[in-house]
């Protein structure tokens, strides 16, 4: 009985792994066939020398980083304040952070375009609008990651301890709260980054040279490079995950206040 249980769990696990990895391996192998008859990295070579790829990729990286910074600056104080002073609004705020899952991105982007393409808000061409949009899209991940991090520490008591030692709000946020939710922020940050790198609709309809629209364009034009680009973006996402884990482990037995 117990033995067969173990066998079955292995079976399902291997099935899961196959389901996930087979297409990826196939894509990878396919991306190596740009030269007839032999396996080569030609597709990658062409991809990395393509100006549009460089441009789209670097723009997306830049916007990803900006989104992370804006997200941290907005969501850390918000989540902190809600936990500290407005616990009665927790559910309401959580609902708001989930809106990007409820409102389809296409609806969201048309809303943005309609609102911000007339005076007095004529900023539809500004990258700021794109970053703002990305921040909204990454909100469910970022906010939740931060909120989970805050749950692991005794926010109220740590705040009061710092206050009684003379600290002001900025000091409390930057020297007490941020360092103690560092791991949570990082995981939120990398998730946001992955979202920005893979986001198509917003960039496409705001006509910005981002990575995903470039990829879509590439698929229509070429055979092997899109496969290579897919592998690259997977590798990137995994690198992000790896980094989350690395930081998560480091000094990360994040002792919580009042533990022991």
């Amino acid at each position: 009985m117990k033995r067969s249980g173990v066998v079955w769990s292995w079976f399902w696990m291997i099935l899961g792994i196959l389901y996930f990895f087979l297409p990826l391996v196939a894509t990878f192998l396919f991306s190596l066939r740009a030269k007839l008859g032999i396996l080569s990295f030609l597709a990658y070579q062409q991809l990395f020398t393509d100006d549009d790829f460089i441009k789209g990729f670097s723009f997306s990286v830049l916007w990803g980083v900006l989104t992370i910074i804006v997200g941290i600056l907005i969501f850390v104080p918000t989540a902190y304040w809600v936990r500290l002073r407005l616990p009665q609004f927790r559910t309401a705020v959580e609902f708001i952070t989930l809106l990007p899952f409820v409102v389809p991105a296409i609806v969201f982007v048309f809303g943005l375009v309609r609102t911000f393409s007339h005076p007095p808000f004529l900023i539809v061409d500004s990258p700021a609008l794109l970053v703002a949009g990305y921040t909204v899209l990454s909100m469910p991940y970022m906010y939740r990651a931060i909120d989970t991090g805050l749950r692991a520490i005794d926010v109220r008591t740590l705040t009061e301890a710092a206050q009684s030692l003379g600290a002001d709000w900025a000091t409390i946020l930057f020297r007490i709260i941020l360092p103690n939710i560092r791991v949570a922020i990082l995981s939120g940050a990398f998730l946001s980054f992955a979202i920005v790198m893979g986001e198509y609709i917003l960039a496409q309809y705001l006509a910005k040279p981002a990575f995903a629209p470039f990829l879509a364009f590439l698929i229509q034009q070429k055979a092997y490079e899109p496969a290579a680009a897919t592998v690259v973006s997977f590798a990137l996402t995994w690198a992000c995950m790896g980094i989350i884990n690395l930081f998560g482990r480091g000094r990360g037995q994040a002792p919580i206040a009042g533990g022991h």
Partner: peptide
């Protein structure tokens, strides 16, 4: 100066 039941040392 304030001392709390939960110690409240800064973990970082």
């Amino acid at each position: 100066g304030m001392i709390f039941q939960a110690y409240a040392l800064f973990p970082n």
